[in-house]
Design a protein around this nucleic acid. Structure first.
Lengths: 165, 165
DNA sequence: AGTAAATCACTAACATGTTAGTGTGTCAAG
DNA sequence: CTTGACACACTAACATGTTAGTGATTTACT
């Protein structure tokens, strides 16, 4: 009895929604031999030109440590090229190679057609509403939100015991 | 010139939207010593009772190989218990332990309050529209969608060369 | 100039995502 | 009764997500 009342799980709902969409594109990407992340990066580079890693992190929603590995693999397979910036030795610039651009050019029509097929099934109105609502949500990304105070109490088994430090 | 025309990246937009939401809850989960996946599983078990792994996969959007490891770790830390089903030796049943239920009971009010704070910022109308659109999308999850034909042509460097087999 | 703070890509360690394949158990057709 | 198709949890191998921390710069301030 006395079930714990919980709000709906919005992150899970967004995850399910994403899976409902990406599942129709995964076969295409697999067939082209690129991962979802590699495809996001390649798209961004072809649309926006040479970018820095931190920009790719922002745009492609990939954390810096992940990006390091992804870019290394993409350089291995010849999809992108990295070069250092003279004016700032910390920074790096990533650009798509001819091979990478060719892949995007080859895939673009297929992706576009799959979008059309998806819209045929879901309905143009749902697609429109979807973009509209998500744009509103993402636009509010930078708006500060208050945080609930964290209780200082005991926790379940954590990865690292902070011990006394 | 002649830029390749591409539709908007809907999976990326959904990923950004999810991050915009989950970022406000991650500190809570970290503080409680559970991962997002563990929290999803624990919530599902506390709301729906004893479940089989494949049900958890469906509900929590976790693939079977991932779930195996997550459940093993949760059993280690005493959050869930696994038992075999007599009638079918293949199957398994997962249930929350007292410790797991206590964690959910402790976290629930904090999560709920954070949702209220988030809604205060985003606006109740956006939240309502968000749920409505996502529900429509997820509901159409099972509707079959036509697939673009995959060209038999060459691919970029793939993980495993199928060679001659 | 010189020092402290900030920035950037990166490494390390662990957890999860993704695909392919395995071993066991169940069930139905023959 | 047996054979074959199927379902289930699992393993293996690799790629990515997540957090903490590092070393090399660059910047702001003195």
């Amino acid at each position: 009895m006395n079930e714990v009342r919980m709000p709906r799980n919005l992150p899970l709902l967004l995850l399910q929604a994403r899976e409902a969409v990406i599942s129709h594109f995964r076969p295409l990407l697999n067939h082209a031999g690129v991962t979802e992340q590699q495809w996001r990066i390649l798209r961004a580079l072809c649309e926006l030109g040479e970018l820095e890693p931190r920009q790719l992190c922002d745009i492609c929603q990939i954390l810096s440590p992940s990006l390091t590995g992804v870019l290394a693999r993409m350089e291995e397979t010849g999809l992108v090229a990295r070069r250092k910036v003279d004016s700032d030795q910390r920074r790096l610039l990533v650009s798509p190679t001819a091979k990478g651009r060719a892949l995007v050019k080859r895939m673009a029509p297929l992706v576009q057609q799959q979008y059309r097929l998806l819209e045929e099934t879901l309905g143009a109105d749902l697609m429109r509403d979807l973009y509209a609502v998500l744009d509103r949500l993402v636009a509010a990304r930078d708006t500060p939100v208050a945080r609930v105070p964290l209780p200082a109490g005991r926790q379940a088994g954590r990865r690292k015991e902070p011990s006394g430090d």
